[in-house]
Design a protein around this nucleic acid. Structure first.
Lengths: 337, 337
DNA sequence: ATGAAAGCGCTAACAC
DNA sequence: GTGTTAGCGCTTTCAT
């Protein structure tokens, strides 16, 4: 089929090994030989065959990035950040969608066929730490986010409690006192929701405000639509707030719609904060004040740790915290116009 | 390192070939042997090594899907549809982002390393048909979308002219007469923009309305923000419309914001249509009336054609058209409330 | 139905 | 600095 390294070697009148050396940029090759080989490569249109190399080295230069679903804007943006970070270290990224189901996550972790990727960046949704920590030991793994946190495994996240406190304090500083929390799961809470809710609660209590359970507006489904309904239902029941901390930007967008539908003004009547700083949060009307995690920092740390594992590092699990900022926009400005 | 097929063979007391037969579900294996081999596989924890198989077969079971950027919602949704369609045929999908640049697209087409993927689904942004048709003949390719259309290459798209006409006619049926077009490129128009604009123009002319160039609102950049500015500028210049056909949902979202900012009501004052039916278009306020391409149909056809090429089909380029629907929502309802 | 042997295209000791 | 020689783990004729 294609031109092989052997063909190039014969054409250039050198050995296989020399061609291999040239292709892999090995330094100890005389300039003349290198030039000759390169001409042969050009003239024959030779392209190295990935599979041969991979079989020989046992490396694929591929990293898996596993999360529920690329159509979730945060994950799409994460995926870009990771691709860039991985590219800088010579790796490419293979997306694995789990659909947020246990089976999906198990399939990813089980990794039934060996050698597809060199390692995996995994943002779990439902799988327990215990189960994750029992994954096949031969596949290096780094956990993204705050869900399951097996101690022996590397992990990168932002400080969710602290960020939620910042968002809540921002609303308090605006003079809001009846502040709700929206967008968490109606049933079993995710670790993400729990931590953000804890930060929300802490900020309120520090100001002497007792958090009211009636101001928690869960979403039937974690999506903008879920929040439209969750927040809408509460509003229709006559519950009133003057501030709303949303679990994520998608929930904030849903909340915005629910409020708009009922003629409630944002931020005048209700100030709203989101979380993730997805592109979309900049273009809503009003634009959304949000927690902006340092995505590229997160991606870089995660990829770096994973590559270290791939390269043989076998130390104890490292848990890294990356930065975030509160991005003040129209839905909860610094001071009301 | 890992357990090899040879290990399984020895453990089960059969030959390598027999194990291979069992692993690949070859039919002519006695039930007893098969059972024995499967037990060996289970007890040894054997997992087939992809690389060995790939080197031997020359197949990777990987398809590349190339487009500008996953954070564009349409592409994220396309990517899901393609993953599903490919999975049904035993393939996995590797995303290739081109950033919408010529270099990015060239890198994808050049495919400098052989054997990474078996074929490629490519949605070009800037590359010309001529250049695409000169791509390496040994990599099967299917083009997505309406940009470049080299005759010898398979392609799947929707009928953009007809869909744009439908959207425009919908606004006309609402009694709108000063209908603008928004969100196309300020400089060089993409084929996408051209076709959609042609459909818009045709619909107007069929109703005896002469399209006015002043009602074309280009975006500096193809993004919601670009449309916020493009539409905003026109409105500030005093230009008024009662309907707006947007090149895509992102532009419609930007237009919505530009109109909202100026207190112009949608749909009462201006009815708006989008394009793509991205998830987001359902949750804006008002939600967006949009052209909904049959994404899964598109993905299925595209993957099917690509796999046929991979399996050796060498006929002339096939150009397939898939369905779309006009989804009527709040931004341009059927009849005004 | 099963086994033996020859590669697939490349890398990596180890010589020279 | 360059060549020789083994594999990497699997599939695939071809025998049996």
């Amino acid at each position: 089929m294609g031109v092989t390294m052997q063909d190039v070697a014969e054409y250039a009148g050198v050995s296989l090994k020399t061609v291999s050396n040239v292709v892999r940029d090995y330094e100890h090759v005389s300039a003349a030989t290198r030039e000759r080989v390169q001409r042969a490569i050009r003239e024959l249109g030779y392209r190295p065959n990935l599979m041969g190399r991979r079989l020989a080295t046992g490396r694929t230069s591929l990293l898996a990035l596993a999360f529920s679903n690329v159509t979730v804007p945060y994950f799409a943006e994460l995926s870009r950040a990771v691709s860039v970070a991985a590219g800088a270290l010579g790796y490419r990224v293979l997306l694995e969608e789990t659909d947020g189901t246990l089976e999906g996550e198990r399939a990813v972790i089980a990794n039934s066929e060996a050698g597809m990727v060199d390692g995996i960046l995994f943002q779990p949704s439902v799988m327990s730490s215990v189960e994750i920590s029992r994954h096949r030991g031969d596949l290096p793994i780094v956990i993204l986010g705050e869900e399951a946190a097996p101690l022996p495994v590397d992990r990168v996240m932002i400080d969710n409690v602290s960020a939620a406190r910042d968002a809540t304090e921002h609303l308090l500083a605006l003079g809001r006192t009846r502040i709700g929390f929206a967008g968490h799961e109606a049933g079993q809470l995710s670790a993400t929701s729990i931590q953000r809710m804890m930060g929300y609660q802490q900020a309120l209590e520090e100001r002497g405000i007792r958090p009211e359970p009636s101001l928690l507006f869960p979403s039937g489904e974690i999506s903008p639509t879920g929040a439209v309904q969750g927040v809408g239902r509460a509003l229709d029941a006559g519950i009133r707030v003057d501030g709303l901390v949303c679990r994520d930007d998608l929930a904030a967008i849903g909340a915005l719609r629910a409020l708009n539908e009922r003629g409630i003004r944002v931020p005048e009547d209700v100030a709203v904060t989101g979380w993730d700083n997805i592109e979309w949060s900049r273009v809503t009307f009003p634009s959304i004040t949000t927690i902006a995690p340092d995505l590229s920092g997160l991606a870089q740390r995660a990829v770096k740790m994973l590559v270290e594992r791939i390269d043989g590092f076998a130390g104890v699990g490292r848990h890294e915290i990356v930065d975030y900022r509160l991005l003040v926009r129209e839905s909860a400005p610094s001071a009301l116009a």
